[in-house]
């Protein structure tokens, strides 16, 4: 069993801690650092409740070793943010009632924001495809898709997202397609 001292930035705070080689990032964040926005869900990289940004990429923190985050920057859905995209997404999850119990929400918000940074004007089916790795047991997804669409409209023309959008807020409650 190896132990490692690691340093990482979590939601803007510089943290140094000692972890075992086997410690998962999500456990280090929650148990060692008290950062509880990422949730422990399926622990098999299916549900996305543990989603965090690792050096800017959304990843599932149950399938990354804490020691692999040494020297990196982690951001969770709870971080204070100058990130307009995520602020707007979070606000729209509230406005559109894109959650019920809220357990999946931190992961949903991060993944949705990641989508909008890449594609500021996604179709409902692109939104659903992008959120494939985030499972919600409450909402039936309709309001989640609506929240992401509203966020895209809200962000249209702002500097926070690339491109000019040309977005129409076609709110669409169609059934999930294609994917699981």
């Amino acid at each position: 069993m190896s132990e490692h001292q690691i340093s990482l930035t979590v939601d803007g705070e510089r943290e140094t801690l000692t972890v075992e080689g086997r410690t998962l990032l999500v456990h280090a964040l929650r148990e060692d650092l008290g950062v509880t926005a990422p949730k422990v869900g399926c622990e098999t990289s299916k549900c996305g409740a543990c989603t965090v940004e690792l050096d800017g990429d959304v990843v599932k923190a149950c399938t990354v070793l804490a020691v692999q985050a040494d020297g990196k920057t982690v951001r969770t859905a709870a971080s204070d943010t100058e990130d307009d995209v995520r602020s707007v997404v979070t606000q729209q999850f509230h406005e559109q009632h894109g959650l019920q119990c809220g357990y999946c929400t931190p992961g949903m918000v991060l993944t949705a924001a990641d989508l909008l940074r890449e594609n500021p004007d996604p179709t409902p089916s692109e939104i659903r495809a992008s959120l494939k790795g985030n499972i919600c047991r409450c909402t039936g997804y309709t309001n989640i898709v609506r929240a992401v669409e509203s966020a895209a409209s809200e962000l249209e023309g702002t500097a926070a997202v690339a491109g000019d959008g040309g977005k129409t807020a076609a709110v669409d409650g169609s059934a999930p397609e294609g994917d699981d």
């Binding site: 996305g48 990429d57 959304v58 990843v59 599932k60 399938t63 959120l131 790795g133």
Partner: peptide, 9 residues
């Protein structure tokens, strides 16, 4: 493959 997060990793 997988999903957005898995493809990042």
């Amino acid at each position: 493959v997988g999903d957005r997060q898995i493809r990042n990793r």
